[in-house]
Design a protein around this nucleic acid. Structure first.
Lengths: 205, 205
DNA sequence: CATAATAATGACGCTGCGTCAACTTCCGCC
DNA sequence: GGCGGAAGTTGACGCAGCGTCATTATTATG
């Protein structure tokens, strides 16, 4: 026992905190999926754990903050994929395809983790957490970078980034509604669309 | 007095109902703008009127339903603009431009009506009301129609419609954040982008 | 082992929810 | 005109979730 403790450098306290935080996030994911974000309450979340109601507030200030933590989490897992696509890409088209493909596959996986039947009546909520804003920046920088290197025409990169993101969001949502969802097809669509779209928009600056 | 009443065909009851419903919607618009949708409560809304709390529930089942009514309202006002653009258009490009232009100008006006300082920290909420779904259908049909008549290539019209809508939403939001917002520039961007984008996507079917 | 530091607990007061019996207002009819 | 009933309004009520905080339990430290 004592040896086991010796092998474990971090304190019991620290471990418990991490575990609690995790339990809350896991429960929240479940509850949001089941009841929908709007209907869910802090009490519902905490009931999904072994903890007492007061404990929740040692970790998060509100339901909203939990949601942000979850989004942030997703964004944080996704960002490296995007960056990898950027670094790996040799052509602009390849970058676009990899980025969209990564996003659509990511969406698929996330949905499966949530394993909800996806009852499409609940209002869609989207928060702009720091990590999500960072993703926007990543996209914008990639596009500007490509423009700099002559791979893509110069263009209003702010609008362009937003156009790509909006497109990805909506096409992604549409993809998820299909049976079976085909992330690769969606990625091909988006890539082709944006690739030529940029040329069109460039002509118009 | 009696003549005035005679000139007024509809009953007092009916008029009061319309007025109450309207008062609630107006108050809700104000409250949502001021406190943000999430933070707003039914009580806040009803306090913004002369009515009693119970009366609210004679008109709406919940805050969500009020929000849907407001969105529906917006969508209902916007739809004719879209349809007009479709009927007026002689080229596909013109249709696209008119549609985007209508949307971006519509956004600008709606914001001014709300006259909020637009404190960009509140989460963005989007509900798919019947009227908004109808708009999606309108867009999709327009695009299919254009494809049929050979004005635009045949293409996955579901993805395409979603791409256009997502693009319009995000670019529209970005436009609103600029000072001053330029709806025409945004419309030109979106039109050019989509016009060529479609060609690219078509090649990929 | 004693003591301090830290975190978990759940009862508490408060606020908003949706309901409903009582009340008010309006309409149709004699 | 005025009476009866339908339609609509009202606000108090019971209930549930909120966020807090004094208390208790657990862990770290010397």
């Amino acid at each position: 026992m004592s040896e086991a403790a010796a092998f474990e450098p971090i304190g019991k306290r620290e471990r418990a905190k991490a575990a609690n935080r995790d339990a809350i996030l896991k429960a929240a994911r479940r509850v949001f999926a089941q009841l929908g974000y709007e209907a869910a309450t802090v009490r519902d979340i905490i009931r999904g754990t072994e903890l007492a109601s007061g404990t929740f507030y040692n970790y998060f200030r509100s339901k909203e903050e939990v949601f942000e933590a979850l989004s942030d989490d997703g964004a944080r897992r996704f960002k490296p994929l995007l960056r990898a696509a950027r670094e790996r890409a040799e052509t602009f088209e390849q970058y676009l395809h990899d980025a969209f493909s990564a996003y659509f596959h990511f969406l698929l996986e996330e949905r499966n983790v949530g394993e909800r039947p996806l009852d499409e009546r609940q209002p869609h909520v989207r928060t702009d957490t720091p990590e999500m804003i960072a993703i926007y920046e990543e996209v914008r920088l990639s596009l500007e970078d490509a423009a700099m290197r002559g791979l893509a025409p110069r263009i209003d990169s702010d609008y362009l980034a937003h156009a790509c993101i909006g497109l990805a969001q909506e096409v992604g949502a549409a993809m998820l509604r299909r049976t079976p969802p085909d992330a690769d097809a969606a990625a091909r669509f988006a890539t082709a669309f944006v690739l030529r779209g940029i040329e069109g928009a460039a002509r118009n600056d």
